[in-house]
Design a protein around this nucleic acid. Structure first.
Lengths: 154, 154
DNA sequence: TTGGTTGCAAAATGTTTGCATGACC
DNA sequence: GGTCATGCAAACATTTTGCAACCAA
């Protein structure tokens, strides 16, 4: 259950982009490639759909996607987010810069926020009782309605 | 689907604590009371468990909890959070001050953060393409391992 | 070789929905 | 009285798991 490496640790070794301890298989490489070319965080279902596009005949299991993502997450290669605005978890590669999104509750469009306010979180992290808390990750989500969907609502 | 009132709007009318348009029923009042005395955000299952403690014999449906929470959410009375560190959504009353938590991935203890860094988010919200985005809410989650669970891991 | 990984199917979990009954305003 | 909420059960969607066969190291 425990994450072995925090995203920050992984980012520092992103040059040798496949960490030791994560066995390289055909399926995992493919999932990794899909994530690395994605412009948005993807759900397991979306990843699976893209796998099937490439592997029409080859057998492929949904559970493999989940298990691979779990392995990636444990290794700090991938960050999982669970958003109020989505009904499924989404995953993205730890690229070095942390990303957060504003997500439309209606059309689910994700607008990438510039920067991460975590730097401003340091005072927040000085909360009493949090001194010995080992932070391995965080997520920030802003939700609401995008311009188009706002207009539709009127 | 659309939230009618944003949390901020609701907070301004928290004195008359039951908004018009939300029908008052025995079940909803009970759920409201449970939320108002909770020290942490609760999942639907946790709320349901507390309901059953009070109503051992009376019939009560799980779906009522979900439907009531949805009604509360639409009315801006309640905020729903979906955390990486939990496998279920949690709900809390909009008390006027927005709360965020650091959650232990192992024991699930929630440490309430002091303050909300959203004020520092204004520059982030000036992202291109976000000018006309109507923000109805946000969630911030910090996850990792608390002091006790860190020690257990060694 | 050998332990970890995969495919498959089934199970587990959390949440939503249809419908008849019942309660609120 | 009419409308909306509830109880119940069944449906749904997502995610997890058991197990035998398989593959990478």
């Amino acid at each position: 259950m425990a994450l072995k490496i925090s995203p920050e640790t992984y980012v520092n070794q992103i040059d040798n982009s496949w960490p030791d301890g994560v066995k390289k298989t055909r399926q995992r490489v493919e999932i990794y490639n899909i994530l690395s070319t994605a412009k948005e965080p993807l759900s397991a279902a979306e990843i699976f759909a893209r796998v099937l596009e490439n592997n029409k005949e080859a057998g492929y299991a949904f559970s493999t996607v989940y298990r691979s993502l779990l392995a990636f997450e444990k290794a700090g290669m991938v960050t999982k987010s669970v958003l109020v605005s989505e009904d499924t978890a989404v995953y993205e590669l730890n690229s070095g810069k942390i990303k957060h999104y504003a997500v439309c509750l209606k059309c689910h469009k994700k607008i990438s926020l510039k920067g991460c306010p975590l730097s401003n979180l340091r005072p927040v992290l000085s909360t009493e009782g949090l001194e010995d808390f080992m932070v391995t990750g965080h997520q920030i989500e802003i939700y609401g309605y995008c311009k188009n969907c706002r207009m539709d609502m009127v």
